[in-house]
Amino acid sequence: MTNSPLRFRDEPEHDEPAVTLDAFLGQSNATAVRIEAGEDARALLPHLDRLALVEVSFPSFRDGRGYSAASVLREAGYRGELRAEGDVLVDQIPLMRRCGFDSFAPAQPVDAAALARALEQQAHVYQGAADGRSPVWRLRHG
């Protein structure tokens, strides 16, 4: 991956390469990890305080396991960079943002104008999620 990722974070990009989950769990000093679609994000929960980057692989845009992986990590309090990598389509990025992804490395280039429109599309959401947006029931009832 030569292109720099699309990022929705202020601090500079983490420069340590992500290691595999097995490698991460087997060594104590890595700060970036990559989890494949079938791997259990919960294995990272005891180590969240030393992680700066978690990269979640999307082998196919149809494979939605990464949305749950991201949600699990954010719900457990992970605050570092959470990157979606692979077959990530422009119209999926708004949903991924809601699940807590704040960095994207799509295999195919993303049309910036289409992405901007997609992110602006829905002013309201029906359900709570990792992005902390207020669902409409909260707007209705304060």
Partner: peptide, 14 residues
């Protein structure tokens, strides 16, 4: 219906 509409985590289920 409302909860499931555009649910971010469950739009690409198996």
């Amino acid at each position: 219906r409302q909860w499931s509409t555009f649910h971010p985590e469950f739009s690409y289920l198996p």
